[in-house]
Design a protein around this nucleic acid. Structure first.
Lengths: 183, 183
DNA sequence: ACGGTTTATGCAACTAGTTGCACAAGGTGA
DNA sequence: TCACCTTGTGCAACTAGTTGCATAAACCGT
């Protein structure tokens, strides 16, 4: 339900082709709304058919040819409507927590290694976010757009901070546990 | 990919019928792996067909009759295998962050009310978790199972704490913003 | 000038999750 | 006693997301 709106947002920030969008999703929007290139192309087709975006002229739409899109007024209106509409938070699904709970009944064998790996991944992500913060949000700038985008980035930073801390605590706990566990 | 394992975990904790599972998902496991009753019934069917669980005897399987399941050795083995297997974290998707980012381009109109509503929801959830912590994990108990389950609950508490704090900061930021925004 | 890699677009089939509804049994009040 | 509500099980259709592959142009070295 939100992919089209993620794409509209990205296109408003800058008109792009499918592949450019894919890359931008990998770098920024994708941090909280990931999408594969196939999803993106499919959705671009739908959005165009619905009259919310259109292909920029100047290139004929041939295979292996770049095709860029821009947002039409109807698309901007739809995005504004969606942004303002009240929405319930979707329940999260987290495999790692589920595995921990499963480990309480079938034993913790093998889990510790993966906790360590997750910790590394989250540390790396955190470092990346902090780099972005330093680069894009130096102190002193406070336009509305910057403020909002910075807020989103802060959410990312704080979430990764939470995970690294929680994983460290989990690993410390594991160290004290009798290993193996009953089966 | 994880629903069957969530169900196996729940059934190992206590053999149950479909509806009982549904209720328990709403209360505990569902906090990090939600599922509707239809999903659960379908999955119970598959798990039974695969020989990982079986219906407890003593009730004939008629419509509108309770039918309880228990985990078979093959099911326990599968759960242990899955728990130990290394898995990559799935990227999160968060609509609220996406909407904030969209608001940076189409304006913040209408968003603040919903931020406030989300804050309330997260505060309520946090209170619920803290109640569970006090009830189920009084200081002093430290069996392995308790330790692990407490760790999972701590993740829930810390996550909700993060959200409430982040939302308060966001609302404070909003208060300073020129409202309305360009279109 | 031709074979391989990169860039770019896209289809088809599959898996997981959601929504809406149907059906049966048992209890409850009028 | 019969209409209605609750409890419990389940099917079918739909939506969203994933995986695997096909195609085509352009660029690049030899």
């Amino acid at each position: 339900m939100s992919l089209p709106h993620a794409i509209l947002t990205a296109l408003l920030e800058k008109p792009s082709s499918g592949l450019e969008l894919t890359r931008r999703f990998d770098r920024s929007i994708g941090y909280f709304w990931s999408a594969t290139h196939q999803q993106i192309y499919r959705e671009l087709g739908k959005l165009e058919a619905d009259g919310l975006i259109r292909a920029l002229p100047s290139q004929q739409p041939a295979r292996g040819q770049k095709k860029s899109y821009e947002v039409l007024p109807a698309g901007r209106a739809e995005l504004a409507r969606w942004t303002a509409a009240s929405q319930d938070p979707k329940p999260h699904r987290d495999t790692l927590l589920l595995r921990l709970r499963a480990a309480a009944v079938v034993g913790t064998a093998g889990l510790e290694t993966d906790l360590r790996r997750h910790l590394e991944l989250h540390e790396r992500q955190l470092a990346e976010y902090e780099e972005i913060e330093q680069r894009d949000f130096p102190p002193g700038r406070d336009g509305t757009e910057d403020r909002l985008r910075h807020l989103v980035l802060r959410a990312g930073i704080d979430l990764e901070t939470f995970w690294t801390q929680w994983l460290r605590r989990a690993l410390a706990d594991f160290a004290e546990l009798p290993d193996g566990e009953p089966t």
